[in-house]
């Protein structure tokens, strides 16, 4: 469904992404992780066509995004949903209007927005403004906005990073349920979530993919130093949980 071939990107003469080759198949959930600043979020924006790489190609549903006109690219983008780390809601619109904005240049189908908002359990609060919502609720609006487009793929850019711990579970639960139905590329540091939901785990470091495999394989037999580090972290979490259980 989504293929990234030999992606190379630099900003201000600093290499941000290089030799990125990644495929996300239909129905698959791919988790992308790595240290902060390694280029995960940038990679998502390249995949969305928001940033044009200097080299390489992005193919979505058999179409090379770089070859598309602005208009066609925008149309294609409406087949992709994204949930941002910092929600990126428009403060001058209500919850409902924020979701409707996704449909403003499309079908103008109110029922789609209604369905999306109901799916995240916020219909009662649809006329509230973002400033009247909690962090978790804001992120649920962000999810509803992505879902309203009924996208073929959903990108998640560290959706729980800006949330209080009490709201993280709520969001992960929604993501878990969506993973059953949608193709997803998720940037996250939530390793238990990756272990549970991901079909493949992709580890990035300094703008490069250093390891890519099913999470179970990486956590059992990592082939990179980064993989070893993540396995250690996961084991520490397990130890801590088992101690708590005793």
């Amino acid at each position: 469904m989504l293929e990234l071939h030999n992606i190379y990107l630099e900003k201000n003469k600093v290499k941000v992404l290089s030799d990125i080759n990644l495929t996300v198949n239909e129905g698959e959930t791919v988790v992308l992780t790595g240290p902060s600043g390694c280029g995960k979020s940038t990679l998502i924006r390249v995949a969305l066509g928001l940033i044009k790489p200097q080299k390489g190609e992005v193919w979505f549903e058999g179409v090379n995004l770089q070859a598309l006109s602005e208009k066609m690219l925008r149309k294609k983008r409406r087949k992709m949903g994204i949930v941002f780390q910092e929600f990126q809601l428009l403060e001058h619109f209500t919850l409902l209007e924020n979701v409707l904005l996704a449909l403003w240049e499309g079908e103008h189908d109110f029922s789609k927005a209604e369905k999306a908002i109901k799916s995240v359990g916020l219909w009662e609060k649809r006329f509230r403004y973002p400033r009247q919502l909690s962090g978790g609720e804001k992120q649920r609006v962000g999810i509803a906005r992505a879902l309203a487009l009924d996208p073929d793929i959903i990108f998640w850019d560290e959706p729980t990073a800006a949330l209080d711990p009490m709201y993280v579970h709520e969001i992960l639960r929604i993501m878990d349920s969506l993973a059953q139905k949608k193709t997803m590329l998720v940037v996250t540091h939530e390793m238990p979530f990756a272990l549970k939901v991901a079909d493949r785990l992709v580890l990035m470091e300094s703008g490069k993919i250093v390891e890519e495999a099913p999470p179970q394989k990486i956590f059992v037999q990592p082939s990179s130093y980064l993989g070893v580090m993540y396995r250690e972290r996961l084991l520490d979490t397990k130890d801590a949980l088992s101690k708590l259980a005793q």
Binding site: R45, L48, L50, K71, R74, K75, K76, R77, R78, M80, I82, F84, E86, Q88, L89, L90, E91, H92, L101, A102, W104, E105, G106, R145, L149
Partner: peptide, 25 residues
């Protein structure tokens, strides 16, 4: 820029990006 990015990610045209995101902001 975050609002603009959100608008662009939703596939808004420049015209609508300006009308719905930039001017009200």
């Amino acid at each position: 820029p975050k609002s603009i990015e959100a608008g662009e990610a939703l596939g808004l045209s420049k015209r609508e990006l300006y009308r719905q995101v930039i001017i009200p902001d």
